[in-house]
Every structure is written in structure tokens, then in C-alpha cells.
């Protein structure tokens, strides 16, 4: 695997709350290869968004801090680089798009200005060239009358158009990795279909790597090559998208997939996962999913399982699959 472009190893991120350090991410590891779309799934509070912010080191104004682990971009550990160097990576090599395009666009700046800024900074283009490039980018993301849009303000655009602008900004410096944090969650389904279609097209064209963070398993199934499932600040399962949906290993993944209503599937009752996500300041001992897990044994409540390669390229952190033990129940 020499084409690994981004590799996160045992990432730990802490937050400060009431004079207490709370570990929100604990040992998150995964990698993204060149040209691959990796899905990062989980429910709210599982730390999926924080993972992306940690990679980008976007903690400004919060007490967030990476307290352990490494993040390798190509061969460089970007947890070790200075803020100045990071600024050069951010936007140029790793770009990001967010859920709500309205809050990530500056409301009082023209679209053109916002689009040209990173182009001028990262690519060193002069005004005229930057403008040309910006218009080109807008056309590329399927915005009609791109010349006029350059002079408009974000509030004059619809949600779908704004997300296109965000994608244009993110893609303008031709990044190696695009991190998309719930890019279509705020959009209507027909618009979501447009945006996903656009993202897939651009990703193919540029052979770009993408980290797609979402709670929507449908989006994962349609977009991703591989999937990482997160729960309570940890990775619980990693598999190719086919394997994951065909035969989910971790009880959490199974519950998650079972609880989504699927069109065309006749089911009277949906499966559901009992209980709720644990509070990060009050984590259970042992496996963090054990209190909600129907397969949990006494050992699960005591000791936290570690990531195991259960089958080839299939990883899962669950005592059920630890062959060194004979505790498989039901």
C-alpha cells in the first residue's frame, strides 16, 4: 500500500470542560489511499466531525487539542508541523467542505472574492488569472451564469448553489484530499442527488481522495469504497462498503444498518439500538458499546477490545471476534 495519502494513527483529541480534560477521540486510526472515497459513519457525538477538525487542526476558539497519535499526510506527520506550515497545507493540499454552507461562507463578502482568496494565496495567481480560474471553477461545479454569480452574495443563492460554491472553493487549489463533513445533510433529497453526483464526478476526474463524513448510510452505500464506523470516539469497524452492508460484524454496525428503514423492504418493526450514546465525561468501563449491546458478556463490561483483522481487510474491535477467547455467546 504505497499509495496511502493520509494516515491517521491512534489519534487522541481532548477538550476542556469545567476544568477537566475530557478525551473525546481515543485511538482513532484509519488511512485513505489515492483516489479512494472513505466513509466515516456514526451517530451524533461519536466524534466523526471532530476527527476531521483534528486532521485540519481547526480548533480555533475551542479548548480542543490533539493529545496523542500521528496524522501522516504523505510522509509528513502534520501533528508536528507549525501553524504556519499547516496553513499552507490547509486549503491547498487538504480541503474541507462543511454541512451548512451558509455559516462557512462569509455573508458580507461577494462569492467571487471568497473564491479568489485561496487561489491567490495558495496558487499565487494575480487578480486577473485568479478571476479566470474562479469562473472556471464555478462552471465546473455546474453553476449557471458563473460570471454573474461572482458578484453576488451568499444569501442570494439557494442551499444547493451555496454548497456548489463551497465545493468550488475547496477544489480550486486542486487538493489531494477533500474532507466532506455531512455535505448534503442540510439539503433536500433532489438537491442532495445533484450534489452527490457532482462530487462523484469531480472525484473521478481529479482522482482525488475523499473523506466523506456522514450519518446517512444511504449516502455511504452510494458513494464510498471503504467505510470506517465510529462509536464513542473510537473506530469499531472498518471494511469495504460491500462487506460492511452484506455482513456487518460489530453489533453496533449491525444495529445501525438494521434500524434504517429501506425503501422497498417490508418490515413491520425496525430494529433499534437500546439506550443512548455514553457521555464522554462519564464513559463506561470496558467496551464502550457494552451497555447497549445485546451480545455483551461480563468481560465486555470489564475490558476494552482492541482492533483485530477478522478477515482479510476487515477490522473490528469486538470481543466476539477475538479468537483467543472462547466467550462467543448467541
Amino acid at each position: 500500500m504505497e499509495d496511502i495519502i493520509l494516515k491517521v494513527e491512534q489519534l487522541q483529541t481532548d477538550f476542556q470542560k469545567d476544568n477537566q480534560r475530557i478525551r473525546i477521540l481515543n485511538g482513532v486510526s484509519f488511512h485513505i489511499s489515492k483516489g479512494e472515497i472513505l466513509g466515516l459513519v456514526g451517530e451524533s457525538g461519536c466524534g466523526k466531525s471532530l476527527t476531521s477538525l483534528s486532521i485540519m487542526r481547526l480548533f480555533k476558539g475551542t479548548s480542543g487539542e490533539i493529545s496523542g497519535g500521528n496524522i501522516f499526510f504523505r510522509d509528513e506527520d502534520i501533528t508536528k508541523v507549525t501553524e504556519n506550515q499547516m496553513r499552507k497545507i490547509r486549503g491547498k493540499q487538504i480541503a474541507m467542505i462543511f454541512q451548512e454552507p451558509m455559516t462557512s461562507l462569509n455573508p458580507v463578502m461577494k462569492i467571487g472574492e471568497q473564491l479568489m482568496e485561496p487561489i491567490r494565496i495558495h496558487l499565487g495567481y494575480n487578480n486577473k488569472r485568479a478571476k479566470q480560474h474562479a469562473v472556471q471553477m464555478l462552471t465546473k461545479v455546474g453553476i449557471p451564469r458563473s460570471n454573474e454569480i461572482m458578484n453576488e452574495f451568499p444569501h442570494q443563492l439557494s442551499g444547493g448553489m451555496r454548497q456548489r460554491v463551497m465545493i468550488a472553493i475547496a477544489m480550486s487549489c486542486n487538493p489531494d484530499v477533500l474532507i466532506a463533513d455531512e455535505p448534503t445533510t442540510a439539503l433536500d433529497v433532489t438537491i442532495q442527488a445533484q450534489i452527490l453526483d457532482l462530487m462523484r464526478k469531480l472525484q473521478k476526474e481529479e482522482n482525488m481522495s475523499m473523506l466523506l463524513i456522514t450519518h446517512d448510510l444511504g449516502v455511504v452505500a452510494e458513494m464510498c469504497d471503504r467505510v470506517v464506523v465510529m462509536y464513542a470516539g473510537r473506530v469499531v469497524e472498518e471494511a469495504s462498503v460491500h462487506d460492511l452492508f452484506q455482513s456487518p460484524l460489530h453489533p453496533y454496525t449491525r444495529g445501525l444498518i438494521g434500524s434504517v428503514p429501506k425503501i422497498g423492504q417490508k418490515k413491520d418493526r425496525l430494529e433499534s439500538i437500546a439506550g443512548r450514546v455514553p457521555d464522554p465525561s462519564n464513559m463506561p468501563k470496558g467496551c464502550k458499546f457494552a451497555p447497549r449491546c445485546s451480545d455483551a458478556t461480563a468481560e465486555c463490561h470489564e475490558k476494552e477490545p482492541s482492533m483485530l483483522e477478522v478477515e482479510k481487510n476487515r477490522y473490528c474491535s469486538c470481543w466476539l471476534y477475538d479468537k483467543g477467547r472462547s466467550l462467543i455467546s448467541g
Partner: peptide
């Protein structure tokens, strides 16, 4: 029809022809 085909289905084995509507609401 378009609405139904736009809903992402959580099953990677399902391959459908999507109807992608043009433009905004």
C-alpha cells in the same frame, strides 16, 4: 419518480439509474 430515485439506498449492491433533476426548487 425523481424523488424516489434520489433517495440514497443503504445497500451498495443496488444499482439504479438515478433521475437527477435539473435546477433548484
Amino acid at each position: 419518480k425523481a424523488l424516489l430515485s434520489s433517495v440514497p439506498i443503504p445497500d451498495p449492491t443496488v444499482k439504479r439509474e438515478k433521475i437527477i433533476l435539473k435546477g433548484d426548487i
